[in-house]
Design a protein around this nucleic acid. Structure first.
Length: 615
DNA sequence: TTAGGGTTAG
């Protein structure tokens, strides 16, 4: 505005100012050239451009007779030609060309020019300044609104988040609308940069300012909430948004499902599934993948297989994720035959296995001690052009550790480092627990104590391994010191940490301490799991308190915790030793009904029980 | 044309 005013004032004061006339004439000449023959003549004989100044540039760029793309080519030429640095377009020229491009609906080019403004230290300025220049162009409110929306996006793309939010606030004040789609771009960028707080805050701002939220934004935000553990908040948000006509879809429900599955929240999973049914939201491949994971992690491989079988009835086309998941769980329960069959089926369907798929198979082989098979799979994978990654290396190292082949494990670690991979927190804890299995406790401890000096911060798993060693040694003082140290370092003990302590106390016959710890973990909001209960049940049975054990056994049922072979074995042997043969056999039947395979110890207990009962 | 699902350690 001011420059135009100045211009008019000057014109009044000096109507025959030779420079002004000459400016206009030069502009006319340049424009004419551009109209008739484009940029080329100006490029080859740039003498006309030597007299250029910001005013002339603006006159040319704003001349409606010059085609917008010709203006753009002149603009770009001035921008990039090193001999014309003194004529680089200023902010006003940028806005002028943006205006021309807007009229020509050249939105992509508009964005590029805007990008030039925000990524240039000299041109960058508050949104109000750009808007004020844009308003001078007198192209109506819609133009300015579009410009704001685009500027917002350009800031988001450049990770200039404060500035983007600044544009949003400004637009809001001026009554301009920033599109939901643009807001989503910002949410996504914030999420990708790990700026979760700002992401959640901006979503609140969107809601508050009446942006019409889409299910995509909602789902993204719910996912971020879930990832930081605020599942309840995510669920509440879903409800609140449903009230505003933002209906959750299958992706939204999958997000929630995943959170419940990760937290082993039985009720949550069931609630999410029944909500899906109520809303008539059908499953997709991702839902089935999640459910397979859910049943797999509950040691219910048959239910996982059932989900896999039902995909056809549900009209779902299986993909490589789905196959990887079912292969993974079969491998983990030791059914490599089935895992390999599924792998073949996947290939026959024309799906392409990737490093995750091979990783799942290799893990299955390693957990089953079949290192030869693991090796063959690694070679096959490489021959298909899939590189071994850190996860696969760690899996293999774990395989050798489990077999007690520490030399081979360490050789592989060396090899992995030679390939440019770091020994990471997984490698350290794997090797440490391998050493423990061979009773090489001192080596394990020193590895875990020194890993930080070697540049890898121990996590809760490493600390738990350490605690486990001290507990097995009966050194509870040291174990508790480790807990203090880990808490000092910001690592919070979890259920497995408590399980290590509880098991340690039980093995030393300190049931009272063990129960105290169970209460302590519950007070901290940590759920005792199958391992916690199995240890406690075992301890009570050894102590001869079979009714206490039974109480715990029922508590598991109430809490929807899976009772595995170890749990049943402990309970059955407890009952047997106590001469309660009928109850023991009843549990034996129940165990088989649950699809669990009793092992030798169960039979041994039951036979023993018959003796006890007779005598 | 955007959001969600698959491989490793205690």
């Amino acid at each position: 505005m001011s420059s135009q005013k100045t211009f008019k004032t000057l014109k009044k004061l000096f109507p025959t100012d030779p420079t002004l006339i000459s400016n206009q004439e030069i502009a006319k000449k340049i424009s004419k050239t551009l109209i008739n023959s484009g940029l080329q003549p100006l490029k080859s004989t740039p003498s006309l451009l030597f007299n250029l100044n910001p005013h002339i540039t603006n006159l040319v760029l704003s001349n409606p007779l010059v085609p917008p793309l010709s203006c753009l080519s002149l603009f770009n030429f001035l921008q990039t030609n090193p001999s014309l640095t003194s004529h680089k377009p200023n902010l006003q020229a940028h806005v002028a060309i943006i205006c021309r491009l807007y009229q020509a609906k050249k939105f992509a080019q508009m964005k590029i020019v805007l990008n030039g403004i925000v990524s240039n230290d000299i041109l960058r300025c508050p949104v109000s300044e750009i808007v004020s220049l844009a308003e001078d162009e007198r192209k109506g409110v819609k133009f300015v609104e579009t410009l704001c929306d685009m500027l917002f996006r350009v800031y988001a793309d450049n990770k200039m988040f404060e500035e983007a939010v600044g544009v949003f606030d400004y637009a809001e004040k001026k009554g301009f609308e920033i599109e939901e789609r643009s807001c989503f771009v910002l949410l996504l960028a914030l999420k990708k940069c790990g700026q979760v707080d700002l992401c959640l805050r901006f979503f609140d701002q969107m809601v508050e300012k009446g942006v019409q939220i889409t299910v995509h934004s909602l789902t993204l935000v719910m996912n971020e909430l879930c990832k930081r553990g605020e599942v309840k908040k995510a669920k509440a948000l879903m409800g609140e948004m449903a009230g505003r006509q933002v209906k959750p879809n299958v992706v939204t429900y999958n997000t929630l499902l995943k959170a419940y599955i990760e937290r082993k929240d039985f009720e949550g999973v069931n609630e999410a599934l029944s909500l899906m049914e109520k809303d008539s939201v059908g499953y997709n491949a991702a839902t089935c993948t999640l459910l397979i994971d859910w049943f797999g992690s509950c040691e219910k491989i048959e239910d996982a297989e059932k989900v896999f079988e039902e995909i056809h009835e549900r009209g779902i086309e299986p993909d490589v994720y789905l196959y990887t998941s079912i292969i993974n769980w079969n491998g983990r329960v030791g059914n490599m035959k089935r895992a390999l069959f599924l792998f073949d089926e996947l290939t026959q369907r024309g799906l392409v296995p990737n490093v995750h798929t091979y990783g799942a198979l290799i893990n299955g082989a390693c957990k089953g001690g079949q290192m030869k098979m693991a090796d063959i799979l690694v070679n096959e994978m490489q021959s298909k052009g899939i590189d071994v990654n850190q996860v696969v290396f760690n899996t293999l190292i774990d395989g050798y550790c489990r077999k007690g082949m520490m030399d081979e494990a360490l050789r592989l670690q060396d090899f992995m480092e030679g390939k440019g991979f770091q020994t990471d927190v997984f490698t350290y804890s794997t090797i440490a627990s391998g050493l423990c299995k061979l009773n090489r406790n001192e080596e394990a401890k020193s590895l875990l104590f020194t890993m930080e000096e070697r540049g890898v911060a121990p996590n809760v798993v490493c600390f738990t391994t350490l605690i486990d060693i001290f507990c097995k040694e009966g050194n509870f003082v040291e174990a508790k010191q480790v807990i203090q140290e880990m808490e000092r370092k910001g690592e919070r003990p979890n259920t497995v940490t408590y399980n290590a302590l509880i098991d340690g106390y039980i093995k030393k016959g300190k049931m009272k301490e063990a129960h105290k710890l169970k209460k302590e973990m519950e007070d901290k909001g940590l759920m005792p799991d199958t391992y916690t209960y199995s240890s406690l049940i075992h301890g009570e049975c050894i102590d001869g308190k079979v009714d206490e054990a039974l109480k715990l056994f029922h508590e598991m049922y109430q809490r929807n915790l899976t009772r595995n072979v170890v749990t049943y074995t402990a309970m059955i042997s407890g009952l047997s030793k106590d001469g309660r043969t009928d109850e023991a056999f009843k549990l034996y039947d129940e165990m088989k009904r649950e699809g669990l395979t009793p092992d030798d110890r169960v039979y041994h207990s039951l036979v023993g029980s018959l003796h006890t009962a007779k005598s």
